[in-house]
């Protein structure tokens, strides 16, 4: 697909993979310190150390966000109305 040269760099289709690559690089960079930094357990008395597992905050953030998006999507089935719903 040939894209419009007048379009901003950000919107050109051929740049989309580059944008994803940048995001992937940033994510990898964020995971890098996992090899050096030791996380301490927040609740050692409770016998859980899941918060010290590799990249805990990364996967926990991703999974909970996915769950919230899915939850919103499901609730949306019941709650969504046309935005003129209350107009008379």
């Amino acid at each position: 697909m040939i894209s419009d040269p007048k379009k901003h760099w950000f919107y050109r289709t051929e740049n989309l993979p580059k944008l994803w690559m940048i995001l992937a690089a940033v994510l990898l960079l964020a995971l890098l310190p996992e090899f050096f930094v030791h996380h301490h357990a927040h609740f050692p008395d409770r016998g859980t150390s899941v918060d010290t597992s590799f990249g805990f905050f990364a996967w926990y953030g991703f999974l909970t966000c996915a769950a919230m998006v899915a939850g919103a999507k499901i609730l949306g089935i019941f709650l969504k109305r046309k935005d003129t719903y209350y107009d008379d």
Binding site: L23, H39, G61, F62, T64, C65, V69, D83, Y85
Partner: peptide, 29 residues
């Protein structure tokens, strides 16, 4: 480190799930 990871990976979730968040002309009850 933990805060950066938490936020960046939720950002990743946003873009990965972007099709599910297509805006529509709706309000929520």
């Amino acid at each position: 480190v933990s805060q950066s990871q938490l936020l960046l990976f939720s950002g990743f979730a946003f873009f990965a799930l972007l099709p599910m968040m297509k805006r529509s002309l709706t309000i929520s009850l």
